[in-house]
């Protein structure tokens, strides 16, 4: 009984510090909104309190507006979903004019996901964002499975990865994360290629390539035929790849893929992630950031840890 009371008192005595430094981006806690599901933040901003989210990685921005893929674009799958949105986005100029001013004032760290079909396009977006106030970092998306050219093509070949990361590196002084595709034979090789080319951090995983067929129509279900699988179904795959990437590089890793609980987030951290991002899980629960943040705090208190430092990669040691 007394022991119990003592433990309770101990738990009360300190507030664990959840802040982390992700490649030079200081986050108040390790929970980010992943690029895509959160759009440009406005819609969720009306809906939920952002206070427990550390930052948002906005939907991919390309040099010119992209229309996206023909519908249907999404389908639910067991413990997940398949999507082929195709990076519909308003383009760099409209993003800077319409979205960025609103994002600047939302009190969150802001990381812009950069997409392109060619190396010049990637570099062009990075260059166009260089002078803009309020951007804390870039995430280079070389892993989207849902566009015809570019995208994943850069993320599945180490030489192409190196080239595109170098090209973007020349255009930006901002912290640069490179988002890797799981659709490769050896994630470590891709992570190292990005690190050697000047990335400040690795972000993974993007979706796993997949498809569904509508048997009533006898046709692929998605307008784009192929899509990307996300959600809890891919969590163990993502976790393994985060483990392998963290082992391969010295730069910090941002882990994501099917996180829906604080325990999932802890697993990514213990595999070697500095921070985590939530995507599909936000659809199940728009308040997921709060759930994870609270759960992480509780865990640190229970373990008597002051911060997350000692947990990063602990399962690998």
């Amino acid at each position: 009984m007394d022991e119990k009371k003592d433990k309770k008192r101990q738990e009360k005595e300190f507030e664990p510090d959840l802040s982390v430094d992700l490649a030079g981006i200081v986050l108040k806690n390790p929970v980010l909104a992943a690029s895509g599901p959160f759009g440009y933040g406005h819609e969720y901003g009306e809906l939920t309190n952002f206070k427990d989210l550390a930052g948002i990685i906005v939907k991919g921005v390309s040099l010119e507006p992209w229309p996206g893929n023909s519908p249907p674009r999404i389908s639910e799958t067991p413990a997940g979903m398949l999507n082929a949105v195709g990076l519909q986005n308003p383009g760099l100029r409209n993003f800077i004019k319409e979205d960025l001013p609103r994002l600047r004032n939302c009190g969150l760290r802001l990381i812009v996901n950069v997409v392109g079909c060619t190396m010049d396009e990637y570099a062009g977006v990075a260059c166009g964002l260089a002078g803009e106030v309020g951007i804390d970092g870039l995430e280079l998306n070389i892993s989207c499975p849902n566009i015809k050219a570019g995208g994943m093509a850069f993320g599945t070949d180490p030489a192409a990865t190196r080239q595109v990361v170098e090209a973007v590196r020349r255009e930006t002084k901002l912290p640069l994360l490179v988002k890797l595709s799981p659709n490769v034979a050896d994630i470590g090789i891709m992570a190292r290629a990005a690190e050697e080319a000047g990335a400040d951090g690795i972000s993974l995983i993007n979706t796993l390539s997949g498809m569904l067929i509508n048997t009533a129509d006898k046709k692929p279900l998605l307008g784009n035929t192929f899509g990307g699988l996300s959600g809890p179904a891919i969590m163990p795959v993502a976790l393994k790849m985060v483990w392998q990437a963290a082992e391969a590089v010295k730069i910090p890793v941002l882990g994501m893929g099917g996180i829906t609980t604080a325990d999932d987030a802890l697993q990514f951290i213990m595999a070697g992630a500095r921070a985590v991002a939530i995507g599909t899980g936000l659809f199940y629960n728009p308040e997921l950031a709060t759930v994870i943040k609270t759960g992480l705090e509780r865990y640190l208190k229970k373990e008597g840890l002051l911060n997350l430092d000692q947990l990063e990669g602990i399962a690998r040691s």
Binding site: E43, G68, I74
Partner: peptide
């Protein structure tokens, strides 16, 4: 249309 977020963020439920 098939939806995910339902609030306009994910652009999953479009019509031409």
């Amino acid at each position: 249309e098939r939806m995910a977020c339902g609030i306009g963020a994910c652009v999953g439920c479009v019509v031409l």
